[in-house]
Nucleic acid binder design. Structure first.
Lengths: 158, 158
DNA sequence: TATTGTTATACTCTATAACTATA
DNA sequence: TATAGTTATAGAGTATAACAATA
């Protein structure tokens, strides 16, 4: 009978995971989970969640965007955008504005408070990324970003 | 009054997303979501979910692993492992075996069927990754994998 | 007392479908 | 008819807490 992993490796040691670590997708998931957890930690004092942070950025960058467009940008359903916009509007970070010529839709705009919070949070997130990527030099960070960008473009709408 | 993004960009165009695309974390998420969706598509005919695929690989690689150890490897709670192991056991891919000396725990082992399915699925996933990474040459793929690995190691248990 | 596996429960996130008011 | 926003509901996926058996 083979020894089980516990006995061989001891209690605190890592298990072999070559079977999964051979895949880029698995490493992508691990890296993403690390970033995700640290982002939640960083965003906590701002009152934003990751998805409301993202939505706020898109609204700041695209004034008078509609909720349907915001849904496309966030890659979620329109119904999900409602609570996100509610949350940002209740915090006085964005506003739903009437559109002349189409009374069905809203034009979303960031408030001054929203733009200010975005600017401050943008810096926080840069600090978070500096921490996560502290083991890579500037050129390596750019390479990582560029490779990820190409993977995204290559697989977009294909 | 500024023109809204719709009017400026037209209906089918992408919105500006520089605010988010500046962050490596956002690109990591986009890339991860692409891979995740394609993985689900690839795994569908095998009957495995991503998490049961991962669990199967770990059990194949670590015979006689316990459920608690599997939970650590998968980075989920022990309670969540129960249904995963149930699923794999019901499909006759792994078995719960008695451990001499500790009647509380199980020694998990992949069945022959489980090892065979793992081998076949491993190939499917390699094909999936070849597709996702088709825009990168061999050296670029290795660079991406290496950079992701370093990010993971740098941030592990810190 | 501590640990393994288990169950029950709750919470988060998101999708689906049906509705309303407009177009 | 089609579209924008909304609501209600359901489904994954996972965490938390309590429990029985065993150490």
């Amino acid at each position: 009978m083979k020894k089980r992993a516990t006995e061989t490796a001891g209690k605190d040691e890592q298990l072999a995971q070559t079977s999964l670590r051979q895949f880029v997708g698995y490493e992508m998931k691990l890296a993403y989970l690390l970033i995700h957890a640290d982002m939640m930690r960083i965003l906590k004092p701002t009152g934003l969640r990751i998805v409301t942070f993202s939505a706020l950025g898109i609204v700041v960058e695209n004034p008078d965007i509609s909720q349907t467009q915001l849904a496309q940008a966030l890659q979620i359903e329109r119904s999900g955008v409602v609570v996100i916009v509610d949350e940002l509007e209740n915090a006085d970070l964005i506003s739903r504005n009437k559109v002349e010529g189409d009374r069905r839709s809203y034009a979303l705009r960031a408030t001054l408070k929203g733009r200010n919070l975005w600017s401050r949070t943008e810096k926080l997130v840069h600090d978070h990324e500096d921490g996560i990527l502290s083991g890579l030099d500037r050129s390596e960070r750019e390479t990582l970003k560029s490779l990820l960008g190409r993977v995204i473009e290559d697989n977009r709408k294909s």
